[in-house]
Design a protein around this nucleic acid. Sequence first.
DNA 1: GATGAATGAGCCTTCATTCAT
DNA 2: GATGAATGAAGGCTCATTCAT
Lengths: 221, 221, 221, 221
Amino acid sequence: MGEAAVKSKGEPSQPRKLSRAARRQQLIEATIETIAERGYARTTLTDVANRAGLSHGLVNFHFETKERLLTETLMFLSEEYRANWVAALAAAPDTPALQLDALIRADFNPEICTPARLAAWCAYWGEAQCRPLYQEQCGSNDDAYFRAMLDICERLAAEGRYRYNPTLAARVLRVTLEGVWLDMMTMNSPYSRAEALTTVYACAAAFFPDHFTQDGPTAAA
Amino acid sequence: MGEAAVKSKGEPSQPRKLSRAARRQQLIEATIETIAERGYARTTLTDVANRAGLSHGLVNFHFETKERLLTETLMFLSEEYRANWVAALAAAPDTPALQLDALIRADFNPEICTPARLAAWCAYWGEAQCRPLYQEQCGSNDDAYFRAMLDICERLAAEGRYRYNPTLAARVLRVTLEGVWLDMMTMNSPYSRAEALTTVYACAAAFFPDHFTQDGPTAAA
Amino acid sequence: MGEAAVKSKGEPSQPRKLSRAARRQQLIEATIETIAERGYARTTLTDVANRAGLSHGLVNFHFETKERLLTETLMFLSEEYRANWVAALAAAPDTPALQLDALIRADFNPEICTPARLAAWCAYWGEAQCRPLYQEQCGSNDDAYFRAMLDICERLAAEGRYRYNPTLAARVLRVTLEGVWLDMMTMNSPYSRAEALTTVYACAAAFFPDHFTQDGPTAAA
Amino acid sequence: MGEAAVKSKGEPSQPRKLSRAARRQQLIEATIETIAERGYARTTLTDVANRAGLSHGLVNFHFETKERLLTETLMFLSEEYRANWVAALAAAPDTPALQLDALIRADFNPEICTPARLAAWCAYWGEAQCRPLYQEQCGSNDDAYFRAMLDICERLAAEGRYRYNPTLAARVLRVTLEGVWLDMMTMNSPYSRAEALTTVYACAAAFFPDHFTQDGPTAAA
DNA sequence: GATGAATGAGCCTTCATTCAT
DNA sequence: GATGAATGAAGGCTCATTCAT
């Protein structure tokens, strides 16, 4: 869309006018980055607008209120996350171990697991406890995720002679995945992504030793 | 806490003068409750003062700035948490399994594990990612906690013939404890505290089957 | 007014191109209605554009600024009002009583005396006091109106043996006409238009009992 | 309230702290003056605060919102107006003519009939038409006023042999009083207050010639 | 001509902080 | 110590105006 029409602020060329959907997406990305950098409590519309290289009036033009911008950003993150693991499950072979492997690896997809997105997730979690609206937005996806995890664990349990309630295994796996995410954010010197993955595999192996080792699914699986 | 932390709203029971320390503690408790109820981002000094039944100006008199009130509240929570598990370890027999059991049970101490404190912790976590100051405040305690956990796991590993790196086991145990905390806050219909404890024991049992079952340490331990 | 002032909202009946004058008139009518509905202070160009079923930018295209739109709307109302009573006087027989009758009835012409126009007049009056520009726009017409009224009252006074200064009578008649207009706007349960007319006739009769009764001009007049 | 504690801006000495009621009254007076000078639509809280020589934050401290400041200012004007005529009636002899005289003169009380108050009344009238809240605030007082006026007119009618329905006379008197008020505001070169009073008396005399002349109540009354 | 995205000035509002009492 | 009125900076929001398409 031609270089002439650019009001550059050092960014790559930006068209003066964009479709409604494209601008909204641009602002949502800027919101994620701003929350990641400054935290939820200190994020202002001016910050978001500056980061997007747009005027702050435009934010209200596209989202009406700050509240709606934040809510829609959370909805976007939530939906993006869901789409990611749903796609990963669909692409994986339909054996329980490989399904679980796909579910675990989905969380480490570099498209999803960026520092900014992780930080934004943390910030929303912190606020969600006292915001029924936020809990609503995420709740249904969380439920679906846990049901998928539980289903896989039950199928794994049916295949081996494991000692634990699949519900417990599924829960520990889920919170372990969450936990290593949080670690990547909050620890001063976090361990590597590879070690995070090893940690989750070790957890899977502890519950399903026939199907997993700390390096991933066993050949038998 | 204890009897000093009166919380009335102009009733005669409110002593006009209280020791500096008692007033500070009263305000810190009010801060925890306010953050739990309204979230970090929407907590104002007026909220805190109202909840404590004190005047607006008194908060600044005792804490200088809002920033310091919030920081000192976090330090209090952090120190309270640390004192709790340190005391639990000291009171428990010095076998690794019973030490781990004590560490796990410490997290479920009703004095520590109140809804308001859980919610406040979540809120601080959400903010901590982009606040080096907050990370500092918690970092050292977290490190100490993890080192204690790791030490126990290494001793357990030395006692049994377990397959996993003690570091991985310690990490999974830690994030599982964290995770069930988070669940208690953020899930729409959280499971019971008893089931949370079972979950953690199941995790311990998965890594250390000779020492733990999902009901707690084995008799042998 | 008339057929040109179509007012649809994107329906096919809206011609894409309209003469400059017709578009302006359409926007002026929308302005009157908007002021009537939302008040002067809360009227925005977006409101006006929406009501006219036109785009936001078109208002500025036709009127340059909001100020000019509002001023020209007032000028239109003022001129419309003037044209109405001038025509009424011209159409009436040239006896002072029938001229006064015509002047009174002109104010009740349903084309002029619509709820929206009354409300808009009130709103402009409220603002006019501190807007020399508005006072200017209306002043000359007001003066002409009062001079016409005064002239008639002087001719009536010359015909009868009335006790009052014609200036006072003219002034009371004028403010009474204004007053019943205001009543129709501002009272919670206003009296009927017929009763408003009776009120004005009673006022005329009080000053000119030989020429008027509360039902209108006497037969002798 | 010594001179030392003054933060002068050229105004006479102003105490740093004032009772709640006094500050509110001060801000209400500043609001009246601001509306009179700039009109309702252009009145900002900064204007009001500047005129009162106070910070704009204080306005919200005492009135919560701009809306409430404006509403309470209207309520004050309304109550002040009512108290004025009620007191005037109470102080006058209890004959209908002298009661009417008192009611008429009350409107010309220099305390009430200041340029700023007249202008503010006009501005509120202009907005009231589309603000049910404003109409409510004034409605009851208006009703009481009109009932008092009507009662007097009925007593006058009972004493003389007048031709007109007392309701019509009362209505014309009321709108005439209103009308000369408006004239004092909106005409470019308004007539004198004395002439306004004469106008109202002439109106009274036209309806009640035995009791009034254009100079006031007759000796007989 | 017409549209609506984009801008930015100005306003209301909130709230941490100060300070006279 | 304690109170609460007062301040002023900063943020969200509105909206008149501009302008690329």
